[in-house]
Design a protein around this nucleic acid. Structure first.
Lengths: 343, 343
DNA sequence: CGGTTAACAGAAACCGGTTTCAGGCACGAT
DNA sequence: ATCGTGCCTGAAACCGGTTTCTGTTAACCG
């Protein structure tokens, strides 16, 4: 009936057995006779005993919790991230602590504080400083999610640079465009930094001079609108806008359409992520699909194994493949002529 | 130097004092002579002692953590929610556990499981069953966030129905429209349910017959695109689409624009939330601003006080006001003629 | 029938803190 | 000199579990 305030010792007393036996029954460990097991189970059932999480955690020296640290940005990307992470954590009976560091200057400390409450942490790339990451790593298993940390900290990420180079090459070669603008802040996240690098690589492979500067904005739709404002107002609008993610691209698209431009005739726009909306807008976005869910799931898995095997060496960093998705916003006709897998 | 594996008893031994004194110093409780305090602080500093969270939590019978349960939907709404919640939790030194129940059928159990690891829980309305909510409430302080639960469970929400009635009245009376479609699934969340009710109320106040059925879709941009497809394909397109939130509205807008419709000339569209994008699209969205951050912060505050005062009666439910925001998607000219505060 | 072994139960130690409680000491008042 | 009276301090109990380790009992074996 009642439920919470009942302890092992009470159950032991009520069932006329020792606490050790109660513990054994409730965990299914060790050997217990049928008779004892019955008595204990009856008492547990009758008084609604549930072992206290803290007591158990203290004894096991394990919190049964994983931490996820991210900047706190909105959008489908982070939703997928969280869900992918949970999809691994929940079956492992680990709860998920989150920390949005967004706009807080003391985030390094807060992450360290979090580390004392969880068994392992996944940190989204670019969220905290490298020194903090290292300190964190000597407290609990850590993995950098979408990005890279110091050499010794494992990470899971995607092949951003090659993928973005592939996309950019498509615009430069297949569509013969030359004047491309890159929208996104390379200093803001490792992902964007790598994409910006890939973007410039594509130019250099063709012996062309890449743009010197990106249009530095954050990663959400409103930032795309802002970027469109900057790019499309005044004289020199580019032929194409290569965006660091789909959300920015959607924002740019809205901004362009709102100015009466036709896409892709007057302006080519591309994204990155293949968010759900990418296929639904008019025109549908040419973009790069990345396995966000898998990424986060992989991170959680990696942490969980590191937690279970405290001795083992840090797991390797892994890089997941992406897929180039050609749709119409780049100027290709409805069915993709050059579509296929990236890299 | 080193950091984690050092305990009170070690510090006590090293400093030549008792564990009680170490505990007193490290917590600043009780009376300790200057001499002792020095010795202990030196040892703490030297060996990098940080009290273990589990030990402390067990002794205090308090987890120092709050739970936040939501369906796992994407979008600016939930981001604001999380950040508002954290803005109260973090200063109170409580970490935040999250649980996305999205698409999982065993969510009731998982919520109950979470309750054993936190001091209190905020549940987004419509996420778990009422019986589960009641069971939850007898374990820890609970508040329903954006919605209502059973009578005995406090909630924080906004004045959805009056706000939506106000907006609908604007379309019916000020713009003389009659054929409105409501997009959103009233069964999916209490918020939508109340908005749908407010929508119909506006009709009835004017002795008009409201639409019998809403267009039932989920709450994200792609769902809005889907709704646009259903509404605008075939003969009978409505004069206006009243959306349960801004994201749906944005989706509908994209769908409408993609079909060559002019907004608001050919089709009026309204939203709810006043998300950042609402003001940035062309045309800007007429919508209802709700204080999402405050809502979540209020929920966290309410739980924290309930945790601190275990005896006290459950706090009252509170309803925060919204604000009607008139922009151009309803057909109003650039400057709002009837703007102002709602209700 | 004696001896070995396996199965099982419980007392006690342990995880790492906090808190109660009793005692020692110095001081001032009587 | 005696008695309070505060101020500090530390031993021990406690929070609620798990686990080791010892001991008993019964079964099995030669």
């Amino acid at each position: 009936m009642g439920n919470s305030r009942v302890t092992v010792r009470e159950i032991a007393r009520l069932a006329g057995v020792s606490v050790a036996t109660v513990s054994r029954v409730s965990n299914g460990t060790g050997q217990v006779s049928e008779e004892m097991r019955r008595r204990v189970l009856d008492a547990i059932e009758k008084y609604g005993y549930r072992p206290d999480h803290l007591g158990r955690a203290l004894a096991a020296r394990r919190h049964g919790a994983l931490g996820l640290v991210f900047p706190g940005l909105s959008g489908p990307y982070f939703t997928e991230l969280i869900q992918g992470f949970e999809s691994e954590a929940v079956p492992a009976r680990a709860s998920v602590h989150i920390l949005c560091t967004h706009l807080r200057e003391d985030s390094d400390d807060q992450v360290l504080e979090m580390a004392r409450r969880v068994d392992g942490v996944a940190v989204v790339g670019g969220t905290i400083s490298d020194p903090a990451l290292l300190r964190l790593a000597e407290m609990v298993p850590v993995v950098v999610l979408a990005g890279r940390g110091p050499e010794t900290v494992p990470s899971v990420s995607v092949d951003n640079a090659p993928a973005m180079a592939r996309l950019t090459r498509h615009l430069l070669v297949d569509h013969g465009l030359r004047d491309l603008a890159f929208v996104g802040n390379p200093d803001g996240s490792p992902d964007v930094s790598e994409r910006w690098a890939g973007f410039r690589d594509a130019y250099r492979e063709l012996d062309l001079d890449p743009p010197a500067e990106p249009v530095r904005v954050a990663m959400q739709q409103p930032d795309g609108v802002l970027a469109a404002e900057r790019l499309l107002t005044g004289g020199a609008a580019p032929q194409a806008v290569v965006c660091a993610n789909d959300e920015i691209a959607l924002g740019v698209l809205v901004g362009a359409l709102g100015r009466g431009l036709r896409v892709p005739e007057d302006l080519v726009i591309t994204g990155f992520d293949d968010a759900p909306m990418a296929a639904l807008v008019a025109p549908p976005l040419t973009t790069v699909r990345q396995p966000i869910r898998d990424l986060a799931a992989e991170a959680a898995r990696s942490i969980l194994t590191a937690v279970d095997a405290p001795g083992a060496a840090a797991p390797d960093s892994i890089v997941l493949p992406t897929e180039f998705v050609v749709r119409r916003s780049c100027g290709c006709p409805a069915e993709s002529p050059t579509g296929g897998t990236g890299k």
